[in-house]
Design a binder for these strands. Structure first.
Length: 552
RNA sequence: GCCCCCGUAGUUCAAUGGAUAGAACAUAGGUUUUCUAAACCUAGAAUAGAGGUUCGAUUCCUCUCGAGGGCACCA
């Protein structure tokens, strides 16, 4: 709907420009809002303010002709009213249009909300000022998340990134992108050595916890590197992979850092940077000129002792991803890895891939609180809550909803006791309950020869004219808009919020309208409505990876 | 010291620069002979502080206060 209003306004402005009633100018991005207040319609736009601000077009000049243009086109097959108020244009959707949308939902079913966003990518301006002819398409997306070192169990922080990454991947797929989920396994390097020391239990031990004690029983020896590798394999296979499975996340690729070394890709990457003049030697080490490319300082690729840094393999990894033909990389990072962003973008630029091919989503850390005081979580101290513990305590659905509700920029204060208590009152149940209620009604409706699978277009949907019925349909048609918004700004928390609003609208409808009644026509119309609601609820919950119980 | 992020109701969180700042939990009260009361209805309750930009600021800018993270030839 938002898209249609946008087009309507764009066309009106263009027409006025053709008629010389408006000067030529590039039409800015037109924002369409869901109105918060009934009297302001269903949707509204602030475009008049924008035109005034950007092009200094005084309202007197534009308001009347534009408004006339909008209202004179065949607008009224969709709107009851388009009105001008306080500088906003408010749109009131026609009931009939809403009622007809149910048929669309019932036909598209699980495909309702599918988009083709990659076709809408804007042309890119080149550095010289011209506009490049080939529109840049970010349609093959690689999304990397969790990527925790194989040195210990997955923590709440890993879980947060995991759930958000997985949900975003689902949403991007829904929006029409080809998406690949990837976990980067740092199976070589210094931390493996430290893990070895920890298992041996010598003076250089850094990791602590029950699992280290367990590993000590199984793995014997005194070569830290050797033991570290063995231990990390066990951790990866017996802890991380099962946790990921428990989280309901499926990765397409588990990418091993080691293979980058085996295949000489690290050397190749360094050579390429050197050839292009982005490196120099100093104090016996090889440096990358990241400072020239927007980073705080230059970074070491090969240390004076000949060991390649983690960052060197990171560049090789970056190159590898682009070589696999991905043109958009999304990387979820914990706030403690914030420093990577600038150097990764620098590396991407140096390798000849645009900086805008990489989107780093920095998730703020999860902080653990107990009895009002913060407990510092760290794998090294052995104090942390694992994602397994949380799922065991509250269940997967609650855990997912819990993390998805919170925006990535928010510092999350976590209290396990509160989470347990909250699990019984978690809003996810309100959403699932709505779904179960719908299923229950449909089960009871068998006598009406109604089925979602054979919706008859002769059902009289015009009977759906109660306020709560129309409000519910308005929620339903917002679904594709929500998918689009999230695909663009990655703010995953909009999805659980929408799920709650949808459930809310359904529960209100349920209180006001009896679905199964003696009135057969009305019953069929209302069954159509709740069936459409069932579809959209399921589509929403599926994107979040949350189950849809038919009974509760 | 420099960089990033945050500060919103008693609590946990929302709000692409838009109109009267939303939920949930908690608190106080109400609703069930009708399709599931894990629901619905009602009430109270918030933008850390001071300036600035704007027709309009929770949102952008500056400063102050407060919390967290990052600034390695570690990963």
């Amino acid at each position: 709907m938002k898209e249609e209003i946008k087009k309507l306004i764009e066309k009106a402005i263009k027409d006025l420009q053709k008629e010389k009633k408006l000067p030529e100018f590039q039409i800015p991005n037109i924002s369409i809002f869901n109105s918060k207040i009934l009297s302001y319609g269903d949707y509204n736009t602030d475009i008049l303010f924008k035109l005034n601000k950007i092009y200094n077009i005084s309202p007197e000049v534009i308001v009347k002709p534009l408004f006339k243009k909008i209202t004179s086109s065949n607008t009224y097959d969709k709107f009851d009213d388009v009105e001008l108020l306080n500088g906003f244009i408010n749109f009131f959707i026609k009931d009939e249009y809403l009622q007809n949308q149910l048929e669309v939902i019932l036909k598209e079913k699980d495909k309702f909300g599918n988009l083709n966003l990659e076709e809408k990518v804007h042309p890119v301006k080149s550095a010289k000022g011209g506009t490049s002819l080939k529109a840049k398409q970010f349609n093959r997306v690689n999304i990397e998340f969790i990527s925790a070192n194989p040195t210990g169990p997955l923590t709440l922080g890993n879980g947060r990134g995991g759930f958000c990454g997985d949900a975003l991947a689902n949403i991007l797929e829904k929006a029409g992108y080809k998406v690949s989920r990837e976990y980067y396994v740092n199976d070589t390097g210094n931390q493996i050595n430290k893990l070895g020391h920890s298992v041996i239990g010598d003076a250089e031990a850094v990791y602590k916890g029950e699992y280290i004690n367990e590993l000590q029983k199984k793995i014997k020896g005194n070569n830290p590197q050797d033991i570290g590798e063995k231990a990390s394999k066990v951790i990866f296979e017996k802890m991380i992979k099962p946790s990921v499975k428990k989280m309901g996340v499926k990765f397409d690729t588990w990418f091993s850092e080691k293979t980058l070394y085996k295949n000489k890709e690290v050397d190749e990457a360094i050579n390429e940077l050197s050839k292009k003049g982005f490196t120099y030697e100093s104090e016996g080490a090889l440096w990358f000129r990241s400072k020239d490319l927007g980073d705080d300082k230059d970074r070491v690729l090969i240390r004076a002792d000949g060991i390649k840094t983690y960052f060197a393999s990171d560049i090789a990894y970056l190159k590898n991803k682009f070589k696999r033909d991905f043109n958009k990389l999304i990387i979820f990072l914990g706030a403690d890895h914030y420093g990577y962003v600038a150097r990764l973008k620098a590396a991407s630029h140096a390798l000849g891939f645009g900086e805008d091919s990489i989107d780093a989503i920095v998730m703020q850390l999860v902080r653990l609180f107990e009895k009002g005081k913060e407990v510092r979580m760290s794998k090294r101290s052995g104090i942390y809550v694992t994602i397994d513990e949380l799922i065991d305590e509250v269940g997967l659905d609650v855990a997912r909803f819990f993390f998805l509700m919170i925006g990535p920029n928010t510092h999350l204060n976590f209290n396990l006791d509160l989470a347990k208590e909250k699990s019984e009152k978690n809003p996810v149940f309100k959403v699932q309950y709505a779904y179960a209620r719908i299923c229950s009604i449909i089960r009871k409706s068998k006598n009406f020869q109604f089925s979602i699978f054979n919706f008859q277009s002769n059902y009289n949907l015009k009977l759906l004219n109660e306020k709560s019925e129309l409000e519910l349909i308005k929620q339903l048609i917002r679904f594709p808009e929500i998918v689009e918004d999230i695909a663009k700004d990655y703010q995953v928390q909009r999805l659980p919020k929408y799920a709650m609003e949808l459930a809310d609208s359904f529960h209100k409808f349920y209180e006001n309208c009896q679905v199964i009644s003696k009135n057969k026509e009305l019953t069929k119309a209302r069954l159509s409505l709740i069936s459409a609601t069932k579809i959209v609820s399921k589509n929403t919950l599926d994107l979040m990876g949350i189950s849809t119980p038919e009974r509760m």
